[in-house]
Simulated scan of single mutants.
Amino acid sequence: MTWKFGKIKINGVKCKNDAYVHVDGSVTKRDKSLSKHLKEEYGQTPLTDRELVFLRNEEPEVVYVGTGFCGQLPITYAAKRILDGFDVIMMPTSKELKKALKKEKRKYAAFLHVTC
């Protein structure tokens, strides 16, 4: 994983947007349309339960949440309830997160916020 503010490259895939890393290692762009309706309330598009539905099907052993350069990603209460069902590691999207993902031996999924 390489990362600069607003850009990320993970598993060979370059993204200029937030991304999901799935248990099988595939990477997909974040579908903000699922949460955009809450942008005004939170000041930016928060991570919501609607975006985390894939976790139920993939059954990761651990979920990483990269909260952005300064760790400012808002997360809704409903999303936190879903995350409570997993071992969760939440930290700013940084070199430390990169190191953690490289060392991770468990089956994991991740959400990576690439700005703020």
Rank of each mutant, 00 (worst) to 15 (best):
M1N: 04
K4E: 14
K4F: 07
K7P: 06
I8L: 03
K9I: 13
K9D: 06
N11Y: 10
G12Q: 06
V13I: 11
K14M: 11
K16F: 15
K16D: 15
K16L: 05
K16Y: 15
N17D: 10
N17M: 14
N17S: 15
A19T: 09
A19S: 14
A19G: 07
A19W: 13
A19D: 02
A19I: 15
Y20H: 12
H22C: 01
V23H: 05
V23Y: 03
D24S: 07
D24L: 07
G25V: 02
S26R: 01
T28C: 03
K29S: 15
R30Y: 00
R30I: 02
R30V: 05
D31Q: 09
S35F: 00
H37P: 07
L38V: 07
E40T: 11
E41L: 12
Y42F: 15
Q44I: 14
T45Y: 03
P46N: 04
T48P: 04
T48V: 02
T48I: 03
T48L: 01
D49E: 14
E51I: 11
L52S: 00
V53P: 00
F54L: 01
F54A: 08
F54C: 01
F54V: 03
R56G: 02
N57A: 14
N57Q: 14
N57Y: 14
E58R: 01
P60S: 02
E61T: 05
V62W: 04
V63K: 00
V63R: 02
V65S: 02
V65M: 01
V65G: 07
G68E: 00
G71P: 07
Q72H: 14
Q72E: 13
L73C: 04
L73F: 02
L73Y: 03
P74Q: 09
Y77H: 14
Y77S: 10
A78N: 13
A78T: 12
A78M: 07
A78E: 10
K80R: 12
K80M: 10
K80G: 01
K80Y: 05
I82A: 01
L83K: 03
D84T: 10
D84L: 07
G85Y: 08
G85R: 09
D87S: 11
D87M: 06
I89K: 06
M90D: 03
M90Y: 03
M90F: 12
M91G: 00
P92W: 04
S94L: 08
L97W: 09
K99I: 06
K99G: 06
A100R: 10
L101R: 00
L101I: 11
L101W: 11
K102G: 09
K102R: 10
K103E: 15
K103S: 15
E104C: 12
E104A: 08
K105L: 14
K105F: 11
K105N: 13
K107A: 07
K107G: 03
Y108F: 13
A109V: 06
A110F: 06
A110I: 04
F111T: 04
T115R: 12
T115I: 07
C116H: 06
C116V: 08
C116A: 06
